[in-house]
Design a binder for these strands. Structure first.
Length: 881
RNA sequence: GCCGGAGUGGCGGAAUGGCAGACGCGGCCGACUUAAAAUCGGCUGCCCGCGAGGGCGUGCGGGUUCGAAUCCCGCCUUCGGCACCA
């Protein structure tokens, strides 16, 4: 802290210094006392505006990244209130999750104690932002009052058949149990905690039937979301239309054959070109079909596959490895025997876990065939081409490559349609090496072959998705216990609703391991079966925390409702949420899970809407100075408290908004925060002392050259209203950085007139009022202070600037009488001419041609063309050389 | 690897088919001050030129257009996500 007493000895300014430390707590307390931002959820007299920011994970202390996320959203809340909206802007904590367990194991404390202490710290820090959260509505997801309803909803979904149990593999460490992907380290895949080699283990786990909703999730109608998020979700869902085709295994020395092998393909038209088949190494028939002499190789390959991540397996530039299993399949259309392989580029979780390989028409299959010396048979070719000429690469579709880019995005079927429409790139493609189909147009084969198969019961059209059902089981302590009891007689039985919540035991001993401690908690584990009363075991898996975050904003509306998760009446009045803001890293998973969960809630009758949020804005992520993600463990966090004590909350808020576009994020750097602080000081100085003349400015107190007093008044008013027009648009579009820049510009303009004849006059006064109101949502404390002084000076009773009405643009103030037109010759700016604001095109052209500089450059030539762009905003003279 | 975003002065960024570099930081110069700090004002993309002025310039290479940071094609770099981090 610097000693501010020295100001008394300088004659810099007679006015009082801007001291945020004195102002900010004062107004924060005043707002709290007056309950200025409490939301009356039953007030129907004003438009409702539900503004939601992603509830934070209580990781420890707030860092600057939290401020980056929250303060612009708070500015929006304040901006909407100034428009008379009834704004609901709640906050809570996403309190279950892995970091609490990691901290608990490491420090031998209880995850709940760790979490609750962090929440306490973060609550205090969130208040210091001057944010207008509706704290009464707070939701903390690790409280039984909340997770009880996770359990209740799970049971409803189970009864509806939307939750089910299936076996699937997890990454498993013998010492620490199930591992998250981030807990598996290195190419040798060892455990992050103990270093042991990670294995796969098959576990029975719980799922939600997400895929039921796949088609509906592709439909974004009725919501207004940024296109990149919609595209990412659409690609994540990955709908493909194709066919399921039934192959049969061929008899062999060791095997009778005749098993069905179903494949999914998007290219049934290429069926005659299938020269081998590939199963996922995890395919259930692999063990059975493998011949004795291939067994060792196949098993080794299966084991090797387990050590690979899906990202590795799907990488298109990796060598396409695989091994034959010593069995053949029979192509249903021509009876050809084709060898069966396993290869890791085929995934068990997609389609049927098996493909027919058509190397001539698929790049991955082509690579595999080339590597393993398998035949490549072309079945589609241009009519005039030699069908048996060897291919150097997969013939995916030459016509597609030459088609206009927009058309190329569509699939094969559309491309064929396009070819038949006779586009420039169109070329007639015909079937070859395809028995009865030879010579027929390729466009007929796709549907025709599927139809023929269907007639014989050997295939049908099918749709498959990249999206998989949602695995909701977690082998962890710190989460919502799954309310199920496993009875040896009755199987898995839901816990009766009147016994909810199934409480998480408060005492927990990790014994230094990541293994779920619930597995050895005898008191928790041993229960009687709700059906037969016999001895039974409680489920020890807990729910994925993405479930907590899939409905918390509904709970905010009635956080204490004792007899159900959601208040239907309030929900109907207040949701879908008008605006949701949160990190871009959530563009797919959280934002998709929660959409799906909302649709399930709708099907349970808990809500009457299809989508949870009308608008979504993903802000960028603020990184540490090292360019890495900010985290306590990396030690690259910035403590906002430090900055707040030095500059005040208003400066920090404003600086975060000014840094750059909000959806971009970027590495944190405090460089430049002084400039924002200086800006607030200038606003302060203008408001307190309009007549002060700077001794350091030679022009202080004078009007700009050639500007009379009347013109100065008009110019001041025009600047204020133009700023209001632009700033309003910027708030609306979340362009906070340019919003601040425009307020700085207006401040600079006011500074130019400070101490002059127009300072303190009605136009000045209006400009000051607009400046304070425009700045109020972003810098709430300083504007409230200056507003209160302004009211006092005018002898008016106090009322908060934040309840004042957002001003209206006076369009007549914005219009100008003349404007400057840049003049280009062949696209290079060579001159500017001034014309009347309403000058006609002819008048502009005349003015341009009359310019001495332009005449000189034209040197007697007449322009070949005169282009007036944007209604005469710019003129381009085209002169041929 | 796949999907999505971004690349512009010394730095953060503005401009999304029409004046490249708004606004701010930093730097230089000046005013005020005994002085320093603070504050205020001016200049500040690069190159050539005393100057008037000219040339070059938005990651790289091509293209469309009277006109491209912006649109299209092909690359490069970087950030986010890839299903048990939240």
């Amino acid at each position: 802290m610097t000693d501010t007493d020295t100001t008394a000895t300088t004659n810099r300014t007679p006015a009082e210094r801007y001291d945020p430390a004195a102002i900010e707590p004062k107004w924060q307390n005043r707002w709290a006392e007056l309950r200025l931002y409490d939301t009356d959820l039953d007030d129907d007299s004003r438009p409702k505006f539900y503004l939601l920011t992603m509830y934070p994970y209580p990781s420890g202390a707030l860092h600057i990244g939290h401020w980056y996320i929250k303060t612009p959203t708070d500015a929006v809340a304040r901006y909407r209130r100034m428009h008379g909206d009834n704004v609901f802007f709640p906050i809570g904590f996403d309190a279950f999750g892995l970091p609490a367990e990691n901290a608990a194991i490491k420090n031998r404390i209880n995850p709940r104690d760790w979490t609750m202490a962090n929440i306490e710290t973060m609550r205090r820090q969130l208040r210091s932002m001057g944010a207008t959260f509706a704290w009464d509505a707070e939701v903390v997801s690790c409280e039984p009052e909340y997770y009880k309803w996770n359990q209740w909803l799970f049971i409803q979904l189970l009864k509806r058949g939307l939750a089910y149990r299936a076996v699937s593999p997890v990454d498993w460490c013998p010492n620490d149990g199930t591992l998250a992907r981030e807990q598996v380290e290195g190419t040798d895949r060892h455990c992050w905690r103990c270093g042991a080699k990670v294995e796969k283990r098959e576990l029975a786990q719980w799922y939600f039937r997400t895929t039921n909703y796949a088609d509906e999730l592709l439909d974004f109608s009725g919501i207004d979301w940024p296109e990149p998020i919609r595209i990412q979700q659409t690609n994540w869902i990955g709908r493909s239309t194709g066919a399921e085709i039934v192959f049969e295994t061929a008899p062999s020395a060791h095997h009778a054959g005749g098993e069905e092998l179903r494949v999914f393909t998007t290219r049934p038209d290429t069926l005659y070109g299938a020269t081998f088949m590939v199963l996922a190494p995890e395919h259930p028939l692999v063990a059975e079909l493998t011949s004795p002499e291939r067994k060792a190789d196949v098993e080794a390959y299966v084991t090797a596959t387990q050590a690979k991540t899906e990202i590795d397996r799907l990488s298109t530039d990796r060598e396409k490895t695989g091994v034959p299993i010593g069995a053949d399949a029979i192509n249903p259309v021509n009876g050809a025997r084709i060898p069966i392989f396993i290869a890791d580029y085929v995934l068990a979780t997609y389609g049927t876990g098996a493909i027919m390989a058509v190397p001539a028409h698929d790049e991955r299959d082509f690579a595999f065939a080339t590597r393993h010396g398998l035949p490549i048979v072309r079945v589609i070719a241009p009519r005039d081409a030699d069908p048996n000429e060897p291919l150097t690469q997969a013939f995916v579709n030459k016509a597609v490559d030459e088609a206009p880019a927009d058309d190329r995005k569509h699939g094969w079927l559309e491309d064929i349609a396009l070819i038949n429409k006779g586009t420039d790139a169109a070329r007639e493609l015909v079937m070859v090496n395809s028995g009865p189909w030879d010579g027929k147009p390729a466009i007929e084969a796709w549907g025709g072959i599927v139809e023929a198969l269907a007639a014989e019961g050997k295939g049908q059209e099918a749709v498959t998705y990249r999206l998989r059902d949602w695995l909701i089981s977690r082998q962890r302590y710190w989460g919502t216990p799954i309310p199920v009891i496993h009875c040896p007689t009755d199987g898995p039985v839901p816990v009766p609703e009147e016994e909810l919540p199934v409480l998480l035991p408060t005492e927990v001993d990790y014994r230094g391991s990541g293994e779920n401690p619930l597995n050895r908690d005898e008191a928790f584990l041993n229960v009687s079966c709700p059906v037969c009363g016999g001895p039974a075991k409680r489920e020890t898996d807990t729910l994925d925390t993405f479930i907590d975050s899939s409905w918390y904003w509904y709970r905010y509306l009635s956080p204490n409702k004792p007899d159900g998760p959601i208040d239907l009446d309030l929900t109907e009045g207040w949701t879908p949420v008008e605006q949701y803001t949160g990190g871009a890293e959530h563009a797919v998973m959280h934002l998709l899970y929660a959409r799906e969960f909302t649709k399930m809630l709708r099907d349970l009758g808990m809500v009457q809407q299809n989508e949870p949020w009308r608008r979504v804005f993903n802000q960028g992520q603020i990184l540490g100075m090292d360019g890495e993600r900010m985290s306590k463990s990396r030690g690259n966090t910035q403590d906002p408290d430090e900055l707040v004590s030095k500059y005040g909350a208003d400066t920090v808020r404003l600086f975060l908004m000014f840094m750059g576009p909000w959806d971009q994020g970027g590495p944190w750097s405090p460089t430049g925060i002084g400039g924002v602080h200086r800006f607030l000081n200038r606003v302060w100085a203008l408001a307190l002392d309009p007549h002060y003349r700077e001794p350091g400015d030679p022009d202080a107190g004078t009007l700009p050259d050639g500007q009379g007093e009347a013109a100065a008044r008009t110019a001041l008013r025009a600047a204020a209203h133009r700023t209001l027009r632009d700033v309003t648009a910027d708030y609306q579009a979340f362009h906070f950085n340019t919003m601040v820049a425009k307020l700085m510009e207006l401040t600079n303009t006011l500074f130019r007139y400070r101490g002059s004849a127009v300072a303190g006059g009605p136009e000045w006064d209006e400009a000051m009022r607009l400046l304070l109101q425009m700045l109020a949502p972003a810098a709430p404390h300083i504007t409230e202070e200056l507003w209160s002084r302004r009211l006092a000076a005018r002898g008016e009773a106090w009322s908060s600037i934040h309840t004042s009405r957002w001003p209206e643009v006076d369009a007549s103030a914005v219009v100008e009488s003349s404007r400057e037109v840049p003049v280009q010759i062949n696209g290079k700016v060579r001159d500017r001419v001034t014309v009347a604001a309403d000058a006609s095109a002819a008048a502009i052209e005349a003015a341009v041609l009359a310019s001495p500089r332009i005449q000189e450059l034209l040197a007697g030539r007449t322009p070949d063309r005169v282009i007036q762009a944007g209604g005469g905003r710019l003129v381009n003279l085209v002169v041929r050389e």
